Computed example of a mutant assay.
Amino acid sequence: MPLFRGLFVRKDSARGTTPVEARKALAGMVAPLGAVGARPGLLSGGNVTGTAGWAYSVPAFHAVLTRGAADGVVLMGNDGPVTAPTDPSPTTGARIDIVYVRHADVDAGDPTSAPAVDVARGAASGSPQPPSLPAGALELARATVAATALSTQHAGVTITQSALRTALRGTPVPVRDAAERDAYRSAHLAAGGALSVRAPLSVVRDDTGVVETTSGAGWVSWPHGGLTRRFSRAATSDAQVSSGGLIGLTGGTIEGARAGVWRISGRASLYTSGSSCVGAAYVEWASGGGAPSHEFARWDLPNTGGTYPLSPCVERTIVHPGGDLMIGVGYRRDVGAFWVTGASSGLTVVEATYLGLGV
């Protein structure tokens, strides 16, 4: 069907718009998947929880369902809690339950055209495998049910919210992390989709809160000022440093950092005990895996015992060409020894703030 009739077009002497044509028209409003398809997923709500019995509770949600590009999409929802029964726990091993939503369709061979929330139950095993789902189903959550479980809210049941999420076309699609982001891009290309400046994919990552866009091979952060990424030293045991030159304290890599001006700043908390230390604090940065550059600020630590916070912080504004940006904060030990505070989480920090394409 090279051309299909649109929504709300009056019937002529031949026919009106068919349900499939209407669903294909609606697909154009949803985030793309392939050349003419749409990404299925939740638009809102849908977090599955356990109950005091052998059932799962599914709250209100809106969802986009599809059986493939040729069938378009079904926009459906649920305005109140729905209970999805399952079986009691297995006698041995464990099994995997998948809670899903599906909209039946008599035109596709189903006995009705009703929506339903249901549970697919896997076989019990020492290494349980997930069950398969019927065509057009959207997975909402995945639960591992151990033999020790007494109900779906018991400690023997682990529920993972596994639903894909989707969005209106042209707005960022929520994804959990870089792996889900990259899987979306791969699935889009595998289904015949194309990427360009005028037809990009955009996502917003749960793990970073950053909007990223791809129009080709890589991902770049959303081009606006004020975006800040921070890396903080984790709490560890106190550690003495009495040798070495550049001592890294904390840092990390900003994946796909936008090209433009970034301000890098670092602060630290160190202390001495039994000896003084002569040296300098520094921040470092590197673009695309290259050799790091440094900005130093003199910081000598006296032999009086006690903790010394770096004040003011070390700071440097750089022009980044785009791509991965490594940042870090550390101390250059020239003479003497110092201690790294174990409980310095939140005190030893490096951050980068995107200022825009120009200053």
Rank of each mutant, 00 (worst) to 15 (best):
S13Y: 14
E21N: 01
A22E: 14
K24C: 08
L26F: 09
M29E: 02
L42W: 13
L42E: 02
L43G: 08
G45L: 07
G46V: 10
N47L: 15
W54Y: 13
V58M: 14
P59D: 01
A60R: 12
H62L: 13
H62W: 14
A63R: 11
T66G: 06
T66W: 15
R67E: 13
G68I: 04
G68C: 03
A70Q: 08
G72Y: 15
V74E: 08
L75A: 07
M76E: 06
V82I: 11
V82T: 11
P88I: 07
T91V: 11
G93D: 06
I98G: 03
V99Y: 11
V101Y: 14
G109R: 13
P111E: 04
P111G: 03
S113H: 08
A114V: 05
V117F: 11
A120R: 10
A120G: 04
A123D: 06
S127C: 05
P128W: 15
Q129K: 02
S132H: 11
L133W: 15
L133K: 10
G136W: 14
G136C: 10
G136D: 08
A141G: 11
T144R: 15
A146P: 02
T152Q: 09
H154A: 03
A155M: 12
G156C: 10
V157Q: 12
T158P: 05
I159G: 04
S162I: 01
R165T: 10
L168F: 10
R169N: 08
P172G: 00
P174F: 14
D177M: 07
D182P: 03
A183V: 04
R185D: 00
R185C: 00
L189E: 01
L189I: 00
A194N: 09
R198I: 00
A199Q: 10
L201H: 09
L201D: 01
S202G: 09
V204M: 06
V204F: 12
V204Q: 14
T208A: 01
T213M: 02
S215E: 05
G216W: 15
A217R: 15
S221R: 10
P223F: 10
G225L: 03
G226R: 10
R230E: 12
F231P: 01
R233N: 00
Q240H: 06
G248W: 14
T250H: 11
G251L: 11
G252L: 06
T253F: 08
I254V: 13
A257N: 00
R258W: 08
R258N: 09
G260S: 02
V261P: 02
S269V: 08
L270Y: 11
S275A: 04
S276L: 04
A280Y: 14
A280L: 09
A280F: 12
A281N: 09
Y282V: 00
Y282D: 01
E284F: 12
S287C: 09
G288W: 05
A291G: 01
P292W: 14
S293P: 02
H294E: 05
E295Y: 07
F296L: 04
A297F: 04
L301S: 01
P302A: 07
T304G: 13
G305C: 06
G305M: 10
G305R: 10
P309F: 07
P309I: 07
P312G: 04
H320E: 00
G322E: 13
G323N: 02
D324L: 02
G328Y: 13
G336V: 01
G336Y: 06
F338M: 02
W339F: 03
A343N: 07
S344C: 04
S345H: 06
T348Q: 07
V350F: 06
L357F: 06
